[in-house]
Design a protein around this nucleic acid. Structure first.
Length: 521
RNA sequence: GAGCCAUUAGCUCAGUCGGUAGAGCACUUGACUUUUAAUCAAGGGGUCCGGAGUUCGAGCCUCCGAUGGCUCACCA
């Protein structure tokens, strides 16, 4: 909050080329001196602005019958060099993959060939030549002319082992992308999944909307928010934890079918399944209920699998999963009964529920309601056993403050969550549209909040006002995009489906804190 | 937030009992006109994560710290 905070990097951190040449690393010095020589000869690669690319690596390899002997022009990163004296081979990597280059002194001339030999692995080059097949049968480009388009001044990670160090892979994702091809594939699939979801919903009359990420009230979910501050308004704001309450206002406004696909922020722990910022899809559809959302969930998930894998029979971490609709359906009570032997319909009240929890070694809060205990039993005994896609429905009212109650069962709500491979993928319900009931639920949440529950909802008067104007019966659904991407890319950790996962910054200099530890200078 | 493990050349990794630091790839130089982890020969390259301690001597033992990974807890 101080004025100095805006200060950027210190000027002495701006590095001249001479400083760069003085770097410790021998390989960097050599690369930098090659650049200096090129500049001196009037061939500065960084002056290049465009290159007339006509084909990509996969075009040439995939359409070779048609392209054999034809002129092609490609650009990319030089990833392999195999010199043979007066001829040499190289590997060019572009966004579609790799292709072999064949370079001969006869075709390039002495000077250009000599310069070719000085290229470094990682340099960005453009090549013009003809598509052909070598004696050993590899589809290649016979290079007639080439241009160095940008210089790579640092040595790349091992060409065979790639980059393995997880810290470096996440912090310097560009390196991971350059040398580990499967990483690119994951993010191509991520893009395809998001595109498929948009097409699926757009084709069914939904419109995509953007609601505030900066909000005065962090509502719509139970989670700890990040806080921030707006200077001009002198206002404390939260980064959103869910778009739900805004999207339902839009249903009140008459859009009838809306969705939002975007980033959420929750100030909680980091794990293999959790990142402080993550992506979620939320959908609201008027005149349907949670059953309608089950069909929509099945449609979205199976369509995504079909789009990126061509099948709904997938393998995640060695386990075969069948995403073909319809998914299994069971009530929470049934799942808990099956996996713990306890029938919560036979449990009289919260006190008895807490006694059973104590007997069974399930930790519950001292004042836990019966429904909360059942939910904890579900998480403790049942959740990890739900491998094939399963809708668990009839959630307790106490843990569902925005959900319509089940007719004839005020202790249960019309809500379900989707479980696959022992993990939650989505959450949906018949939206509570009774403003009186909603106010009571908010009041109950506020009480929990006052009792110290930082995750409980705040009162949202404007949302209640919107409900008083009339929210049609509406079904709502949220699906965690990152987890879907993990599922369909067989990724073990959420960090593997986020380009830049949240990391602790590396301390600039250890020396800065040394005096403290040495007890002063 | 707690526990366990890791950190050695640009990258991937060895490092014995505590005795002056090793390999492969990459790099440099030379040979080689169809190789593909090209090959062959020679060479250069180190803040052993940081700090303190024990010791005649520490990459290795002890303590403190940094960062990451995994597990657990909270959550999606």
């Amino acid at each position: 909050m101080t004025e100095e905070r805006a200060t950027g990097q210190a000027p002495e951190e701006i590095r001249s080329e001479a400083d760069f040449l003085a770097e410790q690393n021998e390989q960097m010095r050599i690369r930098a001196s090659k650049l200096a020589a090129l500049r001196e000869a009037g061939k500065d690669p960084f002056e290049t602005v465009v290159y007339p690319v006509s084909h990509h690596a996969a075009d040439v390899t995939g359409d070779f019958e048609r392209l054999e002997g034809q002129p092609v022009c490609l650009a990319g990163r030089l990833m392999g060099k195999r010199g043979m004296g007066k001829a040499s081979f190289g590997d060019l990597q572009d966004r579609t993959g790799r292709i072999q280059l064949f370079v001969k002194v006869d075709e390039l001339g002495e000077e250009a060939y000599g310069e070719w030999l000085k290229l470094d692995l990682g340099d960005l080059v453009g090549v013009e030549g003809t598509a052909f097949r070598t004696n050993r049968g590899e589809i290649s480009v016979r290079v007639g002319r080439y241009a160095l388009l940008s210089k790579c001044l640092r040595p790349l990670p091992d060409k065979f082992h790639g980059l393995k160090d997880m810290d470096t892979r996440y912090r310097q994702r560009y390196l991971d992308l350059i040398v580990n091809p499967e990483v690119k594939e994951t993010f191509y699939r991520r893009s395809a999944i998001i595109k498929t979801i948009r097409e699926y919903l757009d084709g069914r009359g939904f419109i995509e909307v953007d609601t505030p990420m900066l909000a005065a009230i962090a509502g719509g979910a139970t989670a700890k928010p990040f806080t921030t501050h707006h200077n001009a308004l002198d206002l404390e704001l939260y980064l959103r934890i869910a778009p739900e309450l805004y999207l339902k206002r839009l249903i009140v406004g008459g859009f009838e079918r809306v969705y939002e696909l975007g980033r959420m922020f929750r100030n909680e722990g980091i794990s293999i399944r959790h990142n402080p910022e993550f992506s979620m899809m939320e959908v609201y559809q008027a005149y349907t209920d949670y059953k309608g959302m089950m069909a929509l969930s099945e449609g979205v998930l199976s369509t995504c699998a079909q789009a990126v894998l061509g099948t709904t029979h997938i393998v995640y971490q060695g386990v075969e999963l069948d995403l073909t609709p319809p998914f299994a359906r069971r009530t929470m009570r049934e799942a808990v009964l099956e996996h713990s032997g306890v029938d919560f319909d036979q449990v009289a009240d919260a006190a008895e529920a807490r006694r059973i929890a104590a007997d069974r070694g399930v930790e519950v809060p001292k004042d836990a309601a019966k429904g909360e205990v059942m939910n904890l039993f579900f998480e403790h005994f049942a959740e990890s056993k739900l491998i094939q896609p399963t809708f668990i429905y009839d959630y307790p009212t106490e843990i569902s403050p925005l959900t319509k109650k089940k007719p004839g069962r005020p202790d249960l709500t019309e809500r379900f969550e989707i479980f696959i491979s022992g993990r939650e993928y989505g959450n949906a319900y018949s939206e509570l549209n009774d403003p009186f009931d909603q106010r009571e639920r908010f009041v109950a949440q506020v009480k929990k909040r006052e009792a110290g529950d930082e995750e409980a909802n705040e009162m949202d008067e404007d949302f209640l006002t919107a409900l008083e104007y009339g929210l049609p019966p509406t079904g709502g659904l949220g699906i965690g995009i990152d987890r879907v991407v993990m599922l369909l890319t067989d990724s073990y950790s959420i960090r593997d489906v986020l380009l830049f996962p949240t990391m602790r910054p590396v301390r600039a200099s250890e020396a800065e804190r040394a005096p403290d530890e040495n007890g002063g200078a």
